[in-house]
């Protein structure tokens, strides 16, 4: 059972000393979605960046992040095995859809044929049959969002971080993709931490909701 646990996490701006997040403690159980809400600039995204290891100066984080038995906050991002999705899908435009998925697919899956099969299977489970050879630029926003999630999940992350990944999608598509993401994550049985300012997201996630502005201290 891997849970994602934050202990006394604080994030501050180095030059001014202003604290965006102070002494946050929280535990996300495997298979559940915890939502973090707050106005823009409240440090939601910075918290995810801290967990994934991408926090850039002048922001500075302290405290520990633990995933399962491993303390990940001291590791370089590539060894943390924390998947993250951003507002933009960040599909690599120089690779095909299949190339993007192959880039994500864990290296423990060996052999060209085996890897191709895994990719094809993931695509067809997501209603994207035969998309492996397609250029990401030719996909709709919803299709791209699915591919981005698949790419992350194929890397077998220990936890999934969602940084407002639905905010740029059309209203009609949003429900669809949101269901898809939560379902896939539940299937993988990993903890999910969602950052959003959309109440609807939080309601459908059906997990605990944190308002991050309560954790800010001047």
């Amino acid at each position: 059972m891997t849970a994602l646990e934050l202990k006394d996490v604080s994030i501050s701006i180095a030059d001014t000393g202003r604290r965006l997040v102070a002494d946050l403690n929280l535990k996300v159980e495997a298979g559940s979605v915890t939502t973090i809400m707050g106005p823009s600039g409240s440090g939601k995204s910075s918290l995810l960046a801290f967990i994934a290891g991408h926090l850039e100066p002048p922001l500075r984080g302290s405290g520990t992040a633990i995933c399962g038995e491993t303390e990940i906050s001291g590791l370089p991002p590539e060894l943390r095995k924390i998947g993250i999705l951003f507002q933009d899908d960040m599909l690599f435009p120089h690779l095909t859809v299949g190339g993007n998925l192959n880039f994500g697919l864990s290296a423990t899956v060996r052999g060209r044929r085996e890897r191709m099969q895994r990719i094809e299977a993931a695509l067809s489970r997501s209603g994207l049959d035969g998309f492996a050879g397609r250029d990401p630029a030719s996909l709709s926003g919803g299709q791209r969002a699915r591919v981005a999630l698949l790419r992350t999940l194929l890397s077998e992350p220990r936890a999934l971080l969602l940084d407002e990944p639905f905010s740029k999608l059309d209203a009609t598509m949003r429900d669809d993709i949101r269901d898809f993401v939560f379902m896939q994550a539940a299937e993988q049985h990993i903890p999910v931490l969602l950052v959003t300012h959309d109440e609807e997201d939080a309601r459908i996630a059906m997990g605990p909701v944190f308002d991050i502005s309560e954790y800010a201290r001047p």
Binding site: H54, E56, P76, E78, K81, F86, D88, M90, F103, G104
Partner: peptide, 17 residues
């Protein structure tokens, strides 16, 4: 290019800098 996000994505997938 939003290269920081591309780098972050790749590193989350297990690739070094």
């Amino acid at each position: 290019l939003p290269h920081q996000f591309y780098r972050a994505s790749a590193r989350s997938l297990g690739y070094g800098p």
